[in-house]
Design a protein around this nucleic acid. Structure first.
Ligand SMILES: [Mn+2]
Ligand SMILES: [Mn+2]
Ligand SMILES: [Zn+2]
Ligand SMILES: [Zn+2]
Lengths: 162, 162
DNA sequence: CTTGATAATGACAACCATTATCATTAACCC
DNA sequence: GGGTTAATGATAATGGTTGTCATTATCAAG
C-alpha cells in the first residue's frame, strides 16, 4: 500500500504534520485545486474555484494556506507583473520541477519551459559560482523570465504595433 | 558645444519634446534625483529626496513622471519583491546599460552586475532563439535575478539561520 | 513679451491586493 | 468524547498605486 493518509494525495497530511501544521478541509481543497490545474492561479482564482465546492471557505484562508505552502516549499509564488501573486504547485521530488517562464505582455499568458538547452544549466551554475565569489554573495535561488508576445498576440498586434 | 537645452543634462528637454511631452520643474527635479544616485529608489524614496528642494512637488507627480519616463524607455522599473516598484535611470545609449541583479533576501540590498561571463550573452541569445522557435513566441526582453544573502547578512545569519 | 490652448500638477479620494484582528470552530493527541 | 490550541472566517485595516478635477504653468504662436 503506497503511503497515503486518509485521502487522495500522497502524503499531504504527513507533510503538514511533519511541519507542525494541521491538515484541514480548506487546505485539502486548496491543494486539490492546485493539483487539478496547469495554470498559474492567483489567490482569488483559487478562492473562486474552491468556493464552488466549499462556499464557506474564505479568501483570507486561501492566502494563509498559500503562505504556509510556500514556506513549506510545496508551492512556488511568482510575480508576472500583473499586480497579483500567482501560485504553482511544486511537482514534488522530481528534479524536473524547476522551470522558467515566458510571459506574454499582451494577454498575460504564461508558458512554462523546462527543456533547457544543456548549456543553460551548466552556465547558470558557472555564473552563480562566479557571482558568489566576486560579490561574496550566497546565491540560493534565481528567477528567469522572458517577456514578449505569444503566438496568438503576435498575429493580432502585427509588426506595426497597432 | 555639446547639445544641451537650457539646463544641465544632455538633451532631456529635447527628448521630452520629441515625445510630445513638456519639460517641467518636477520632471527635471525627479531626473536629477535619479542621476545623483546609484541606488534603486522607490517612488516614495524619490518623493522624499525631491521634497527637500521642492517641498510642493507631490507624490502623484512622481508616479506619473516615472510612468512617462518608463514608457520613454529612459528608466527601468523593477520589482525586487519588497512590495514596491523600484526605478533606475537608463544610462543612455551605452550598450553596457543592460544589467542584472543580485537581491539580498535579508536586507534587500541590490547589487548590479554587468560583467557577464562571456558565454552568458551568447547563451541568452541562443536560448531566446530556441524558445522563440519552439513556442512561436516573440521575445523582446528578459529578467534575470539571483536571490540570496549579501556579504553582510551572510555573516549575521550564519549557517544555522539564527 | 504677451497670450492662449492645453498638458501637467497637486490635494484628495478611490482602488485593490494583501494582512491584521479577534471571536468562533475544528484537528488531533489523549 | 474532551480539552487544547491551531486554524478559520467575517471584517476592518494597511499601503502602494491610480483616478478625479480644479488650478497652474509650459511653450508655440503672434
Ligand atoms: Mn510555471
Ligand atoms: Mn540596477
Ligand atoms: Zn499573448
Ligand atoms: Zn543583505
Amino acid at each position: 500500500m503506497p503511503r497515503g493518509d486518509g485521502k487522495g494525495p500522497p502524503g499531504w497530511k504527513g507533510r503538514f504534520r511533519g511541519c507542525g501544521h494541521r491538515f484541514t478541509i480548506p487546505r485539502q481543497a486548496i491543494i486539490e485545486t492546485l493539483e487539478k490545474t496547469s495554470e498559474h492561479l492567483s489567490a482569488e482564482d483559487i478562492y473562486l474555484k474552491v468556493h464552488k465546492q466549499y462556499p464557506n471557505i474564505g479568501l483570507t484562508t486561501v492566502y494563509r494556506t498559500l503562505e504556509v505552502l510556500a514556506q513549506m516549499r510545496l508551492v512556488f509564488k511568482f510575480d508576472f507583473g500583473d499586480g497579483r501573486a500567482r501560485y504553482e504547485l511544486s511537482h514534488s521530488d522530481s528534479k524536473k520541477d524547476h522551470h522558467h517562464h515566458l510571459v506574454c505582455t499582451s494577454c498575460n499568458r504564461i508558458i512554462d519551459y523546462t527543456d533547457f538547452i544543456d548549456e543553460e544549466v551548466e552556465l547558470l551554475n558557472k555564473t552563480e559560482k562566479a557571482l558568489s565569489k566576486k560579490f561574496n554573495f550566497k546565491i540560493s535561488n534565481h528567477l528567469i523570465q522572458f517577456y514578449g508576445l505569444c503566438e496568438k498576440c503576435k498575429k493580432t498586434a502585427g509588426p506595426l504595433g497597432g
